[in-house]
């Protein structure tokens, strides 16, 4: 464990909590892509199947349970509890365009052709594109509430910190996980456009982010 990975996990946790609290307190999921949240729940489900078979550390197990619980709670709030505030008419990204290539690639490129390893690889590739429906929804509506942009900031920051973690681990323990690194770089690149808007618009105190 190093400071970059810890900061990354904390940033990820903060992002998930920001979103969950926003939906819970405003009793609305307007402007939130339910599809992205379902994809994230799928990412955690397929990645943490080793929750009961492999024990890494208390921290690892606790965080896996927390991420699974919070992501399913978020999906529940969107599709069940506050479903009448869900903007399904704006959440129209075709997720099959993400799932098919990701499934194909995880069968082609993986560390071992075993169910657990292929599902882990699937979760890594899926996470890189899971935010697409949310970013698409924002471009479609042309705006995002500032709290939603803070959620996206911490979500994008988490994988950027993981890249620093991978550089650190390569230099200190000559460890590298190529699938995770390539996918993590792609994932972070997808956030760059948002980061630019975030720093130039939201942090200028302009409340919600309106796209040009």
């Amino acid at each position: 464990m190093n400071v970059f990975r810890l900061a990354g996990d904390v940033s990820h946790l903060v992002a998930i909590i920001i979103l969950l609290l926003k939906i819970w307190r405003s009793k609305s999921c307007a402007g939130i892509s339910g599809k992205s949240q379902v994809l994230f729940a799928l990412v955690f489900t397929t990645r943490y199947l080793d929750l009961f078979t492999v024990f890494i550390s208390v921290y690892n197990t606790v965080m896996k349970v927390v991420f699974l619980a919070l992501s399913y709670a978020t999906v529940y709030l969107i599709y069940m509890r506050f479903r009448n505030s869900y903007n399904s008419e704006n959440d129209t990204f075709r997720v099959e365009f993400l799932l098919v290539p990701v499934i194909g690639l995880s069968f082609l490129e993986n560390y071992a052709f075993t169910p657990l390893e292929i599902l882990w690889t699937f979760s890594i590739f899926l996470e890189a594109v899971a935010i697409m429906p949310q970013l698409f929804m924002i471009t479609k509506t042309g705006e995002a509430e500032s709290i939603t942009t803070h959620y996206l900031f911490f979500l994008g920051l988490y994988r950027a910190l993981y890249i620093a973690n991978w550089v650190w681990r390569y230099h200190t323990e000559s460890f590298y996980d190529l699938i995770a690194i390539v996918s993590g770089v792609v994932q972070t690149i997808f956030f760059c456009d948002f980061f630019y808007l975030y720093f130039t618009r939201v942090l200028r105190g302009r409340g919600k982010m309106t796209l040009p």
């Binding site: 996990d9 990820h12 890494i56 896996k64 460890f175 590298y176 996980d177 699938i179």
Partner: peptide, 10 residues
């Protein structure tokens, strides 16, 4: 090995 047998990252 270069890749993680048991993936120790979240």
């Amino acid at each position: 090995a270069d890749e993680a047998e048991a993936h120790d990252e979240l």
